[in-house]
Structure formats: structure tokens, C-alpha cells
Design a protein around this nucleic acid. Structure first.
Lengths: 213, 213
DNA sequence: CCTTTTTCATAGTGGTCACTATATAAAAGA
DNA sequence: TCTTTTATATAGTGACCACTATGAAAAAGG
């Protein structure tokens, strides 16, 4: 017996559902939407832009994705495990805090020159009309969560004596968060991967090394 | 005889012009527009929002300011000599490159918590609809000019032997530019002046000191 | 006074916004 | 076949977008 209801999200379910089957590739359409939102932002992308790029009509979009806001949030989730996957990969695969942050920054440098440039979370929906505040709040919450993860990473480095005990975890996390956000702005403005990598390396020179025993 | 026509921008001209006088304070209205654009961005601010906040009707706005885009650009000019004045002040008043950049970052920390938060240039108009690309391009050009100024500053520090000759001026300029942009994002998200100042101080720890003779 | 100039308030312009009502088409279940 | 379910295409919905046509009002020049 299932305790937690799975809402039937199996990627390839050969057992067909009841009504008329969808006549377009939902994932491909979502990818098109991602590139458009990435390039033009939430406010700058219209339903007409989306349906044209996705090759579907408005009713199909609303049936498949709910609303513009729901599509955007789904795209952001997809972004995190796609172009933004460098972030969780660095956290999972690196052992030291310094190694993790170094890899994060270099991963950002590589990732941010892809597609329209910049990060869909770091520098998205900063200023907007009041009627899209709910969207801006959710993206801001993602940035806040990122800062929280970085703070936890540095806090653990303090506990593990990887950095001086005097290190302020929140402050160092905000510093590297700012670097990522600044790299996103410059990538948006056309910076190259070499230029972004140079920013990353300069930022790593601010890492608080422990005085050698 | 005047060679260059002055377009009559004297602040207080007692000699009245020909037609019906303007019945509102142009500067006060422009300030209201600045706060609104600052908070909601260019796309997120409508003419209706503006006229309501400025206390004028659309024809008055268009007569006084030309268009939404022209008003926005005028507001950006005003921003540079108002809330953004810390930037040129630091460049004019500090002698060393290190002192200038330190003051720039601390000035940004103080400035970015004012009003709606963040910087109207560093993190504005990053993603937008194609029909407002001309605006986004102009703001991006301002960011590019800022990077140019920072690069020149570091280049002069190299010439003056203030920093090692091996220093890459463009790379260091981009690093501090990224710090300012990241501070702007976090200020937008509600960071305090203390948190922003901590970012500034960590960034200064990456300054390339010359090995003491 | 009258003309000229500029700004004002009223009341719109066509266009685009996110979204949907309606009817039909295409599948599964009975 | 007949019902049920879901997706489709057509064709819109009212609301808002940036912007303006019109004419009256308020000043200066003559």
C-alpha cells in the first residue's frame, strides 16, 4: 500500500492515459520556454512569445503547464538540474569547503556563458511590477537558500578546523555569493569564460587559510 | 555670439518663457519617477504608475520628459549624481587605487541600502523583451564604462608601482566590478549595510599587495 | 485687445497582455 | 457503439500597454 501518493510522473509510461494524447513533446516545449525566459526574463516574455517558440497554442500551454507563473517555476526547477547542476555537483563531490567553493566558481564561469548568458536564479526578477511580486519572491527565496547552503558549508569548515575559528561563516558565504551574482551580471553583458574564470581565481585568493602549525 | 546653443537648463530662471507655465515641480516629479523605476525596473513601471506617483497626467509627462525611455535615461543621469555619487567622489578624492576601491566598496555598501535597495545601474535591465533592448543596451553600456574606469584605475596603479607589475588590470577590475554587482543583488534582497560592508572588506583582502622591499 | 506659445485636462487610440469559452478531435473504458 | 476523458484549434475576453488628438487655459509679445 502506498502511503505517499505518487502523482504519476514516470518519464516514459507505456500505459496510455484516457483522453486524446498530447500532440507535442512536453519536455522539448519546456526547454524552448526555458531559453526564452532565460533570455528575456519573466516580465519580458509573453504567452505569445512562448506559444510561438514552443509551437503550440495557448490552450495547450495552459493545459500542459497551468499558467505562465507555473511554467516559469517548473523551468527554474529544470534549470537547477540542467545548466545549474554544477552547483549541487560541486557540493556533492568535493570534500573540502575550499575545494567546493573553488569548483562552484569555476563551474559558474563555464555555465554562465552557455545559452543567453548568466544565471537564471542569481540575477533574475530583481525589479518587477507589483503583480509579479510572488514570482520575484520565489526567485529571491532560491537565492536566500543558496546563501544558506554556502553558510552551512563554511560553518562546517570552521567546525572541521579547515579555516580559522575566527571566520564569520555568513560573511564569507555572502562574499562568495556576491562573486557568483557578479559573474552572472557580467556573463549577461557578454563576458568570456576566461574573464569569468579570472574573477573566480581572484575571489579564491581571499580564502581564509589557517596559519600553518 | 553663442557657438554652442545652451538648451536653457538654468535651474532657476526668473525670466519666464512664453507659454502657459508648468504647474508641477519637474525635479520633484523626476525624483518620484526615479524611486518608482528603481523599485520596479523599466519594464515593471507603467506610464500609469508614473503619472499617479508624479501627480500629473500623461500629456504633461510626455511634454516634460519626451517618452518613457527618455524619462528613464534622465533618471539614470540623475541617479549617477545623486545616490550613485559615491562612485565619482571616491575616484576624485582618493589618491591610491587601493584607497579608491576600498572607498568605492564601502560607499556602495552604504548607498545600496537606501531607497528600494541595490544599484540602478549594476543590476538593472539584465533581461528584457526585445522591444526594450535599446534601454537595456544603454544600461549595459554604463556598466561597461564602469569596468573601463576601474581598469584604468588599476592600470595606473601598475604604472605607479602601487601593485605588482604582474597584476592583470582588466581581471582585477572585473573582480571588483563583480563585487559591486553582487552587493547590489544582495541589497535588493534585503541585505543590511553591515552585511554588505563585510563583503567589501573580504573583497579588499584579495588586493594584490606588493612584496615589501 | 489679439496673436502666439506652451501646458493643461479629458478622453481616447490601436495594440498587446494573460487567459479562456466553445466546440471538435482523438484516445480509453464499458 | 457509446460514454468519458483529455487535448486540440478557433476565436475571442476584459484589462492594461505606451502614447496622443483635441480643445481649453494661462502665460508673454505686440
Amino acid at each position: 500500500m502506498k502511503i505517499i501518493e505518487d502523482s504519476a510522473n514516470s518519464p516514459e509510461e507505456p500505459a496510455r492515459r484516457r483522453g486524446r494524447p498530447r500532440s507535442f513533446d512536453r519536455e522539448a516545449a519546456r526547454d524552448k520556454a526555458m531559453m526564452l525566459f532565460w533570455q528575456r526574463g519573466y516580465e519580458g516574455t509573453s504567452i505569445n512569445d512562448l506559444t510561438e517558440a514552443m509551437g503550440i497554442t495557448p490552450p495547450s500551454l495552459y493545459t500542459a503547464f497551468g499558467s505562465k507563473e507555473e511554467l516559469y517555476m517548473e523551468v527554474l526547477s529544470l534549470y537547477k538540474i540542467g545548466p545549474g547542476a554544477y552547483f549541487t555537483e560541486a557540493l556533492a563531490e568535493e570534500k573540502t569547503a575550499k575545494g567546493t567553493i573553488s569548483r562552484l566558481l569555476h563551474g559558474a564561469a563555464s555555465s554562465f556563458v552557455f545559452g543567453p548568458g548568466g544565471c537564471m536564479i542569481s540575477t533574475a526578477a530583481l525589479s518587477c511590477a507589483p503583480d509579479v511580486k510572488s514570482v520575484a519572491d520565489k526567485v529571491a527565496a532560491m537565492r536566500s537558500a543558496t546563501l544558506g547552503v554556502l553558510t552551512g558549508l563554511v560553518q562546517r569548515a570552521i567546525t572541521d578546523s579547515e579555516v580559522p575559528a575566527s571566520t564569520n561563516a555568513q560573511h564569507l558565504a555572502r562574499f562568495y555569493g556576491a562573486i557568483i551574482q557578479g559573474m552572472s551580471v557580467q556573463a549577461h553583458d557578454g563576458a568570456t569564460v576566461d574573464e569569468l574564470t579570472a574573477i573566480a581565481e581572484t575571489a579564491m585568493s581571499a580564502w581564509p587559510e589557517k596559519a600553518s602549525d
